[in-house]
């Protein structure tokens, strides 16, 4: 339905104005939310330092943008998250291709994957501290553990979902095994890989911060929030949450755009495998 609407709307100047209108409408929704928040907080059901108004929070967020410590914390968290994701992709994509290519390997590895995947990352935090000591490494390990599974499973799906007709056609045109892998199987799996990465990223930021709270030794956003909330006022925590939420929002939106632009030709984009 959305596709049909945008095609109809693309005839004249309507198309240019649409993003502007959309943004304005989104802003209206955001302002309405903040107004509601302001009203609730102004009634003082709880102490103002525990539940500050929207204006106090946003003003505090604005001031935070000028704090060097805060930016260092954000840099550390994003560093852990991105390095963890990069390692996950380097592990999970080749592994997924190897597993997905062969029925035998798939059956042999399936149980191990199904057994390891539900172990939630934070449960491994105490072990990560023991093995990787302090600093950024335990957090990176937790991000890797979380991200590897969705990317791996989606890559395997993508490799196994290959259309037999496409495979046979390529073979009858005399393509070798490597050529089929690179020109038929991998392009087919690409959209699944991207979906896996997007699911991984949507959880990676939360796990990175969780890791910093439990195992980060005071580093990153998790460490920064721990220090600030110990001071007795929660205003900096709310203020930081607004900024971190905005960063997460931008990352998610950017990925959706990349997914739509790069793989618009692929029909599987319409469905999402939640695994």
């Amino acid at each position: 339905m959305g596709v049909a609407a945008s095609r109809l709307g693309g005839l004249d100047g309507v198309r240019l104005a649409r993003p502007v209108v959309r943004t304005a409408q989104g802003l209206v929704g955001g302002i309405a939310f903040c107004a509601l928040w302001q009203l609730l907080a102004d009634r003082h059901f709880v102490l103002a330092v525990y539940f500050p108004t929207a204006t106090t929070t946003l003003r505090s967020s604005f001031f935070l943008l000028g704090h060097r410590d805060f930016w260092v914390a954000i840099r550390d968290t994003l560093h852990a998250m991105l390095e963890g994701l990069a390692i996950s992709i380097l592990i999970a994509v080749p592994a997924g291709v190897a597993v997905g290519r062969s029925d035998h390997v798939y059956r042999i590895t399936r149980t191990v994957i199904e057994l390891l995947r539900p172990i939630s990352a934070v449960a491994l935090a105490p072990l990560a501290i023991l093995v990787f000591k302090t600093g950024i490494k335990p957090t990176i390990f937790l991000v890797v553990w979380t991200s590897v599974w969705p990317i791996l499973v989606n890559t395997i799906y993508g490799m196994r979902d290959l259309d037999p007709v496409a495979y046979d056609t390529a073979r009858s045109f005399g393509f070798g095994r490597l050529a089929i892998l690179f020109r038929v199987a991998l392009p087919n799996a690409a959209s699944y890989v991207v979906t896996g990465v997007r699911i991984a990223i949507s959880i990676a930021l939360a796990v990175a911060i969780a890791g910093e709270i439990v195992a980060g030794g005071g580093q990153g956003i998790g460490g920064w929030i721990g220090k600030e909330s110990a001071s007795g006022s929660l205003v900096p925590v709310y203020a930081a949450a607004v900024i971190v939420g905005a960063i997460g929002y931008l990352i998610n939106r950017l990925l959706e755009l990349v997914e739509q632009r790069a793989l618009h030709w692929h029909e599987s984009l319409r469905t999402e495998h939640g695994r």
Binding site: A208, V244, G245
Partner: peptide, 16 residues
């Protein structure tokens, strides 16, 4: 708004 709230990492507001 919903997308923003979804992007908010829950551990960041655990102290609240």
């Amino acid at each position: 708004l919903v997308h923003f709230l979804r992007s908010l990492p829950p551990p960041a507001i655990l102290p609240v």
